[in-house]
């Protein structure tokens, strides 16, 4: 019990306190790629602090607008408790991987509700795009995970991770890892898939009307999501190495998450944005490829 609570607190500390630092690293990296100097590493903390104190503009008089950011950040925190970050999911006894994925969907639902509540055309278009991408993303995430579910016969993350850790790499899992990795970009709102926010055309899309604390929660949610998704990816598709000593495992996982996020950041820095229909087509093809991984998993390779 005490161990579970400690792990839960570690997870929360990672996604609340350490996540903005990761964002700082990405910003610095992006600046280096663009031959700029870039902001200091602690800039995201300063942004959040400042935003929390800034004026909170209430736009439509529609409470779902205020519900949006709270729902987003809250369900991301909940998702963090169902995610293994090196030491097993603290609430793994209460919910499996489908629960985790649906909490992440709930988080983007919060963004969409907030975006449409104001009636701003930019926000509504952004939300509709977010939803369209969400449709293709959710099925790909779950199909990737199902490739791991087939041999373990269980949706429990700890069992999936233990199985893969014990048996070593298999063809189907390697194929499934690629789409999952490519999905990270879209889930984290990074180029070439930052279509819902599309700063140059929609001026932030669903976040356009959000100001002050609302924007802070949205931003913070995104930083936290990076760690959750990267951890999920690593736990399922790259569970090595594991020492069995919990603090060491958490540190190893953190280092791996850092590497994943840096790669995501580099892809973000060097790509242009693509159109929403191109993105949908891209992911439909990706899903077709994933069906091969599923068939390989069914025959046990």
């Amino acid at each position: 019990m005490a161990k579970t609570i400690l792990i839960a607190l570690t997870n929360l500390a990672l996604v609340i306190l350490v996540a903005p630092f990761m964002e700082g690293v990405i910003r610095k990296l992006k600046a280096v790629v663009h031959s700029r100097k870039g902001p200091p590493l602690i800039q995201p903390y300063l942004d959040l602090l400042k935003l929390l104190g800034k004026e909170n503009l209430n736009v439509a008089g529609n409470p779902t607008f205020s519900l949006g950011p709270v729902l987003t950040f809250g369900s991301i925190l909940a998702a963090a408790l169902f995610t293994p970050m090196g030491a097993g999911a603290p609430l793994g006894f209460a919910g499996d991987v489908i629960v985790l994925v649906y909490f992440l969907v709930l988080a983007s639902l919060g963004i969409m509700l907030g975006g449409t509540a104001t009636g701003s055309p930019y926000g509504t278009i952004g939300s509709a795009r977010e939803m369209m991408l969400g449709i293709v993303v959710e099925i790909i995430v779950l199909t990737c995970l199902i490739v791991a579910v087939i041999p373990t016969k269980s949706f429990n993350l700890s069992q999936i991770s233990e199985w893969y850790h014990a048996t070593g790499p298999s063809l189907s899992m390697i194929i499934a890892a690629v789409p999952f990795f490519l999905i990270l970009q879209i889930q984290l709102g990074k180029l070439p898939f930052d279509i819902p926010e599309a700063d140059q055309e929609l001026m932030g899309g669903p976040f356009l009307e959000a100001s002050g604390p609302k924007l802070a929660l949205y931003k913070w949610g995104f930083y936290a999501k990076q760690i959750i998704l990267a951890s999920l990816f690593l736990e399922v598709f790259l569970p090595w190495p594991k020492t069995g000593i919990i603090p060491v495992d958490i540190l190893i996982n953190f280092a791996k998450v850092m590497v994943v996020i840096v790669i995501v950041g580099v892809i973000d820095a060097v790509n242009p944005r693509i159109r929403v229909d191109q993105a949908v087509r891209y992911f439909i093809i990706l899903w077709a490829i994933l069906l091969f991984a599923v068939s390989f998993a069914l025959i046990g390779v």
Binding site: L51, L208, P213, W220
Partner: peptide, 16 residues
């Protein structure tokens, strides 16, 4: 967390 900064609230029209 969103209340931590004790931000002021103001009602505004939609930005167009």
């Amino acid at each position: 967390i969103s209340r931590l900064g004790q931000a002021e609230t103001r009602t505004v029209p939609v930005w167009g």
